[in-house]
């Protein structure tokens, strides 16, 4: 794709995110018009306090979190697919999702008064602990190949799932089991400004680190020995990249719960559009993730009287997008 076409694609997707963000701020059980938003931003005293409160305490944090969640999962998914050389890689591959799920489940079961903040803390710690265990496992085997990381991730995911099943079996079906299931399906409904602010530094560290290390990430599409022959300190670089992407993903899912499919499909859509697999693909993958999550969240709170779990809608939106771009490629049309 030419540079001019690339610029058009990026401009278009940024405009789409902007429009989706405005819709996301306006739509909900309590609707806010564009005029009211303009008045609030201009400091007009005639706007109702309710609208002001809904805008600043609910809608803006939720919309910002939607963008961060999609961007984080899309970017991290692309990074995983490049460094594991596996088109099926997503944040689950090295056990982050499984660990975060287990952490959240443990917080729900063991600390009855944990509340949403306790669950967020539990899932963040669980995600990090899972990646730490994967690294320990890789070190214990003495085989530091990419495949060993994937296998260790499968092991940690399996262990997490087994423990979660045990917790679910003994959980109180009315409250604890329902809370666990709901967390697994993901929602932006629990987002508050203070939660966004508390995870923002970690998110930004992860994001900035991955962007700064983009050349190393791109090189990791080569085989391990080829990377070493080109002078890369593969062990250290891979560990740093995994920790940064874990920071990014854990910062998101500790607030939103598990959001399925975004980390898997956003990179594919990005590659199908750009027909490349480089830094631009990573960035576009993050932007596509953001638009998918924003649209899914708007639908989640407007399709039904009660709010739907976001994972249902990310899948409903993501699958047709992926199929469309696959068909475009299959027919040999330029996208």
């Amino acid at each position: 794709m030419s540079k001019q076409k690339e610029r058009i694609v990026f401009s278009g997707i940024i405009a789409a995110i902007f429009i989706a963000a405005i819709i996301s701020v306006c739509i909900g059980k309590y609707e806010i018009s564009l005029g009211e938003i303009r008045q609030i931003l201009q400091g007009d005293p005639d706007v109702s306090e309710m609208s002001r409160q809904v805008l600043f305490t609910l809608r803006v944090p939720r919309t910002v979190m939607g963008i961060l969640a999609g961007a984080g999962l899309g970017l991290a998914g692309c990074v995983y697919q490049i460094i594991f050389k596996n088109p099926l890689a997503s944040p689950d591959i090295i056990g982050i999702a499984g660990g975060a799920n287990l952490g959240a489940a443990l917080a729900i079961v063991s600390v009855s008064s944990a509340g949403m903040f306790g669950i967020a803390l539990g899932s963040f710690a669980g995600g990090f602990l899972a990646v730490f265990c994967v690294m320990l496992l890789v070190k214990a085997t003495g085989l530091r190949s990419t495949a060993t990381y994937v296998l260790a991730g499968i092991v940690i995911n399996a262990v997490s799932k087994a423990v979660i099943m045990g917790l679910k079996y003994f959980a109180d079906p009315e409250n604890e089991l329902a809370a666990m299931e709901y967390w697994e399906m993901g929602t932006l409904g629990n987002t508050t400004a203070s939660k966004v602010m508390s995870v923002l530094p970690m998110f930004l560290i992860g994001l900035a680190g991955l962007i700064l290390l983009h050349r190393q990430i791109e090189m990791m599409a080569l085989g391990d020995n080829e990377c070493r022959a080109l002078g890369m300190r593969l062990g250290i670089v891979r560990t740093v990249i995994l920790l940064l992407s874990t920071l990014l993903v854990a910062a998101v899912i500790c607030i939103t719960g598990l959001i399925s499919f975004v980390g898997l499909i956003a990179p594919h859509i990005s590659r199908l559009i750009l027909k490349r697999n480089n830094f631009h693909t990573m960035i576009l993958s993050g932007l596509i993730g953001a638009i998918v999550v924003l649209c899914a969240d708007v639908l989640a709170r407007s399709l039904y009287s009660a709010e739907l779990p976001i994972s249902i809608l990310t899948t409903v939106i993501g699958v047709p997008m992926l199929v469309y771009f696959l068909c475009q490629r299959g027919r040999g049309r330029s996208v």
Partner: peptide
């Protein structure tokens, strides 16, 4: 190397 391990996309 015998063959470069890169699939494409660059």
């Amino acid at each position: 190397p015998q063959t470069c391990s890169l699939e494409g996309g660059r």
